[in-house]
Amino acid sequence: MEPERTFFEYLQSFSEAKSPIDFVLIYDNLGRFFDGALVTLQLTFLALLVGGLIAVPLAIARAYRKLFFSPVIRVYTYVFCGTPLLVQVYLFYFGLGQFKAVQESFLWDPILSSPWWCVVIAFTLNTAAYTTEFMRGAIETTPHGEVEAAKASGMSALTRMRLVILPNAFRRSLPAYSNEVIFTLHGSVIASTVTLQDLLGVGRWLNGRYYLAYEGFLTAMIFYMAIVLLITVALRLAEKRLLGHLRPRETSSSAAARVAA
């Protein structure tokens, strides 16, 4: 009888037997990929959190066409939505570093000298710009009746914003926000171009270290897919809960129609 082989031994024999992919190398370096995934998640969610917080007041100012603020914010969102994220990151990382004044300012150490902070700042400003614009849309499309009802029950402008307009605008922008979360995750690969060891950075490290073509990319891809799957499931659950009232209701007649079909 053949002796029991451990999973690792199986992997080794498979990789040596002319497998196009070196699974042993991937297995040996899985720890690094988990570290990389952590960096990717930190960058993505820190940017989303801070960017989201910045976006709320900006979206309100845009929706109510506040004099002065609204056009300034429009210019900001136009610049950050209208230029590639890669260019923005390079501008913060390589661009600002060129100026002696920046290097000598208090911002250099520890903020602008660190690739991590440069990337976080660029990602945050980028996602804030996108979030501002679709949240503005959601605020503007608040049904007029809701606002009137709130006024009629004596709510102040602030209370109306807090209890009626914003919660509903958040709900309605959730599908758009799901996309934004995934786009930000996808965009986070740019971190690897400025020396950060995020998921793609680790993949490129593995390829570079062992002169491989796709082992690193393939592993990174599987990690990204797993992360996206988790995000999608979480957001779908949130949508189900928060947007439940907008789903077509299951009635006895529609159930009967389905059975008949």
């Binding site: 390589f94 570093g97 060129q98 290097q103 250099w108 000298s113 660190s114 690739p115 171009t193 020396t195 060891q197 950075g201 490129r204 490290w205 570079g208």
Partner: peptide
């Protein structure tokens, strides 16, 4: 250890003090 795409980027970051 920081890994760069081109040698020119390495020099640039040495100059900035990164």
């Amino acid at each position: 250890l920081r890994l760069y795409n081109t040698q020119e980027d390495v020099f640039a970051d040495l100059v900035t003090g990164r």
